[in-house]
């Protein structure tokens, strides 16, 4: 991965439009940024879900951020393989999500209890597999009674 140029840094700092507390690099969506000797930038991103509506916004945000920084030619490519997994999310991103009120995903294929991001209780249960966005499910806490979003392990 070519991470030496400043283009990577600019792309990596871009916040996710639906979860602005984390960057697209934190989430593992940003796969690669290459810069050729003509100053052309090629960005590769991977969607969390096939139908993720945030991809268009992320793509537009990338072009705007990089052109504002002076790059004349920016193109963004959606890469599907290998498929994105929550395992690509950084530990820092998971901590940020929790402080934002979204329970972060655990390791894939492990059915662990989900900790309530409000009160920290493990007495929680799934209310609906499908939450406010494609990547989240809706949970409710048995201790503080608050509902919360959980980023699905995927």
């Amino acid at each position: 991965m070519s991470t030496d140029g400043s283009a990577w840094k600019i792309a990596a700092d871009l916040p996710d439009p639906e979860l602005p507390v984390v960057t697209i690099a934190d989430l593992g969506i940003l796969r690669d940024v290459t810069e050729d000797d003509q100053g052309r930038v090629h960005v590769q991103i991977t969607p969390t879900y096939s139908g993720c509506p945030a991809m268009e916004t992320i793509s537009a945000d990338l072009v705007e951020a990089l052109t504002t920084a002076g790059y004349q030619h920016v193109d963004v490519e959606f890469v599907l393989a290998p498929a994105w997994t929550t395992d690509w999310m950084t530990e820092e991103a998971k901590a940020k999500l929790a402080s934002y009120g979204v329970a972060p995903p655990g390791p894939v294929a492990l059915a662990l209890s989900v900790r309530c991001p409000q009160c920290g209780s493990l007495d929680t249960r799934e209310w609906s597999r499908f939450g406010s966005t494609a990547c989240k499910s809706l949970w409710v806490c048995g201790s503080c009674r608050e509902p919360f979003d959980h980023f699905k392990a995927h």
Binding site: G51, P53, W127, R129, F130, G131, A134, L138
Partner: peptide, 20 residues
């Protein structure tokens, strides 16, 4: 309401597959 979200999300996944 939860079912509204569920069926919409399922449709959205299918739409994403269809687009690609």
């Amino acid at each position: 309401l939860e079912e509204d979200l569920a069926l919409a999300n399922i449709g959205l996944d299918q739409l994403g597959q269809a687009r690609t």
